[in-house]
Write a protein that binds this DNA or RNA. Structure first.
Length: 206
DNA sequence: GACCAGGCACATC
DNA sequence: GATGTGCATGGT
């Protein structure tokens, strides 16, 4: 995939705060809408943990509105920065330090941070070796008959963790390339009845 | 107008 | 433990 598509330059964010905020905002949301919300936060001078923490809930909601489900996501971002400030004195490095299992539990205990968002934060903001499993990853693996349709998040994550050298930059690139390929699969199937992809399992599994 | 997009929490069975 | 539903915007 790397030979075919080259580096994907993920995560598209400059700071740890921007990565975390993007990870929450992109939940069930197209990235283009997330970019617009992030641009509004930046414009308001609030694209930081302190900035988000200082905002009133209604202000935060209004700024991130383009990303959709803005009330839900404002609550989740507020929950994250609250834990960051209260438990780690506002230090993201402190929050992401310690053994990976503990860090993962710490993150998933926060309202609005599920397994995928936690792994995205750990890999892309913490640059630590955990694999992010998303719908595209499952789609690509399933269409290559590497998993079946009901494989759990942890099962798929375990495949990468057990069979690859835990190298964060490689995990970063691998997952980004899976998303790239997953999108191509999706589009190719949508417009090309005769292409070889059409013979692969449908989504969802028939 | 329907469907989907780099999920998650919550209710219910 | 498995399944269903609400959240809400913007692009196709």
């Amino acid at each position: 995939m790397f030979a075919a598509y080259g580096p994907q330059h993920w995560w598209p964010g400059e700071t740890e705060a921007e990565i975390v905020i993007g990870a929450v905002l992109t939940q069930n949301t197209a990235w283009g809408n997330v970019e617009r919300a992030i641009a509004r936060l930046k414009q308001a001078g609030c694209l930081s943990f302190e900035g988000v923490h200082a905002l009133a809930r209604a202000e935060l909601e209004e700024l991130i509105r383009p990303a959709g489900t803005f009330r839900v996501k404002a609550k989740r971002l507020a929950a994250f920065v609250d834990r960051l400030v209260l438990d780690h004195a506002g230090s993201i490095h402190d929050m992401l330090a310690g053994d990976l299992k503990s860090v993962r539990c710490r993150l998933t205990a926060i309202h609005g941070i599920g397994p995928e968002t936690a792994d995205a934060i750990i890999l892309y903001a913490g640059r630590r070796p955990t694999f992010v499993v998303d719908a595209y990853t499952k789609r690509v693996l399933r269409r290559h008959f590497l998993i079946d349709g009901n494989a759990s998040y942890e099962t798929v994550r375990g495949m990468f963790r057990n069979e690859l050298v835990p190298d964060p930059p490689m995990f970063n690139e691998y997952r980004a390339l899976l998303v790239k390929l997953g999108k191509l699969h999706c589009r190719a199937r949508a417009r090309c009845d005769g292409c070889p992809l059409a013979s692969l399992p449908h989504d969802p599994e028939p």
